Each structure stands twice: as C-alpha cells, then as structure tokens.
Amino acid sequence: MSQPSVILATASYDHTIRFWEAQSGKCYRTIQYPDSQVNRLEITPDKKYLAAAGNPHIRLFDVNSNSPQPVMSYDSHTNNVMAVGFQCDGNWMYSGSEDGTVKIWDLRAPGCQREYESRAAVNTVILHPNQTELISGDQNGNIRVWDLTANSCSCELVPEVDTAVRSLTVMWDGTMVVAANNNGTCYVWRLLRGNQTMTNFEPLHRLQAHNGYILKCLLSPELCEHHRYLATASSDHTVKIWNVDNRFTLERALVGHQRWVWDCVYSVDGAYLITASSDTTARIWNMSNGGVIQVYQGHHKSTVCCALHDGAEPCST
C-alpha cells in the first residue's frame, strides 16, 4: 500500500478510527477500536504510525497497512489517556492520563521509561520545541513544567484555582504558551528563558474567548504566512481564530458545526484547519475566508479527535 501524501485520521465514540482522502472526503480505511473510546490521535513525524490514546492504553497502528491490529500497545496507565505526542525525531512518545500521571515511552524499548505525578487528572500535555520540557495541565487547574534533563518539575502555576485546564499550546519558536480552561478563558504567557530551559512565565494576555468550555486551543505553525493565529474550539459549536500579532483580536469565527467542537489541527502551512465535532463530522476550513472546503461524514457518533500529517514539519532544537 503506497503512502498517501496527506494523512488525515479521525476517531469517534462509535469505536472506529477512519482514514480519509483529504480532498475528496472519501474514507479509505476503517479500524475497529472495540476496547474503549479514543481520546486523542497523533501521527508519528515519519508518517509511519498512528497513535490512538484510549482507556487505559495507547495503541500504535501502521499507517501503510490494511491490518486492523495494532503493531504495539502501551499499557501502564490506569485511566483514560487524554494526551499523546512524539519527540520530533520520533524516538520517544509522551502521554498524560486521568490517572494523574505523565509518562514517557521509548519507542525502541518496551515499557514506560519515566513517570511524573501530577496529583490530579491530566487533560493535556505538550512538548516544548526545545524537546527537553513537557508542559501539563490538569483537572485541578495546575500547569506544570517537567524538565526532562533534570527529571523533575521545574515550574508550577495555577491561572484559576479549581478550574480545569483543558488544553495547552506552545508557539513553534518556544516564546509563548496558551492555556485554555473550562470557563472559556485563554491565559497567555511569554516564556522567559535561561540556559535553554524555561525559567519564568510572564503574563501577557487574558482572553475571554468563549462562553462555554474551550476543548482545544492551538497556535498556528511556523510556516503560517502573514500573521500568527490562535484557534479555540468550544462547546458553543464554534471555532474562533484570534490574531496573535494584533493583541488577540478576533479574526473570524468558523460556524457550521451543530454540536461541540472537540479538536482541531492546522495544515503544515497554516492555510487550513481540520475540526472534529460531536455532530459526527470532521471539516476542513479555508483559513483565508473561513469557508468549509470538505465535510468528512461516516462516523455514527461524536467525532472527538483528528490528526493530520501533510508535509515535512520542522524539528526545532
């Protein structure tokens, strides 16, 4: 099976993962995932594998195979895995779970290599572009920086006490972090650095982006032209696009989904945005005018996560 140039995958509460032809909207492969719902999808940097974060395991599927069976299963979490991602060279994987832990997995060796205790259900984990720090957000409102070199927590902050941090995103150059919470608020910090590690979060902006939950926030990629943007996906059925370079003014609202929008992901050049919604569909939007280019229909229940790999993404160091 030849590798498609664009890999688009979605997962749903109908216990399936679907692969789509991005332009035509045709589903060309369906994987049954009977053991649990899938909370998050991520494609490896080399496009070879798709990681599906479920409950309580992570399964790795071969993108270029028709086999329904995973090639690897990672099983030491004890509750829903809510976050999964890869180091830029694809050597290791990180995850965060409602069991209160952040874990690191060496893809070349069996078992969990490291574990960090967050003491509350972990909703989101991101890897800083320096590839040496993880940032996690949990149900109690805590944000923690895990220094992988020192093997310890190097920073903690709580933007709103007892308000769950639902999503985190970091600018591609490592200069900015955004946290989105259940009150519809985004907190923005400038990252001050010393000796190549984060030393301080300097408050930059507080954005009341939605009246409902923010389920995903995402900063635009390095190759995005003209301006830098923040996308926020919400339970209010919309995705809003904010102009980072113009003090987070609202650029446009993407309106069309009929229910909660759970996830979003940019194309590598920032020209398009893929969204996944409880209305069972995924959509691709044109970022220049807010129009819908394609609707991906085939799931029978809420579509809660999506993953896209459409080009060579730069590996920051």
Rank of each mutant, 00 (worst) to 15 (best):
P4G: 05
I7H: 02
I7R: 01
A9M: 04
A9Y: 03
T10D: 04
H15Y: 07
E21P: 00
K26N: 08
C27I: 01
T30E: 14
D35A: 07
N39K: 08
E42G: 05
I43Y: 06
P45G: 12
D46H: 09
K47M: 10
K47V: 03
A51E: 06
A52Q: 07
N55R: 08
I58G: 03
R59N: 09
Q69M: 11
S73W: 00
S73R: 12
Y74D: 02
D75A: 09
V81Q: 06
V81L: 08
M82E: 13
M82F: 07
A83T: 02
A83H: 04
S97P: 08
T101Y: 09
R108T: 14
A109I: 05
A109V: 10
C112R: 11
C112Y: 07
R114I: 00
A120Q: 11
T132N: 11
N142K: 12
I143V: 15
C153S: 11
C153Q: 15
D162K: 14
G174P: 13
V178A: 13
T185S: 08
C186Q: 01
W189I: 02
N195E: 13
F201N: 06
L204F: 06
Q208R: 15
Q208S: 15
N211C: 09
N211S: 14
K216Y: 01
C217R: 01
L218E: 10
L219E: 07
S220C: 08
P221A: 04
E225S: 15
H227Y: 11
I241S: 06
I241L: 13
I241G: 08
N243V: 10
V244H: 01
N246E: 13
N246G: 00
R247I: 07
T249W: 00
A253K: 01
L254Q: 03
H257G: 04
W260Y: 11
V261K: 01
V265N: 06
Y266S: 06
A271H: 09
Y272D: 12
I274S: 02
A276W: 02
V292H: 01
Q294C: 14
S302A: 15
L308N: 04
L308G: 02
A312Q: 10
E313H: 14
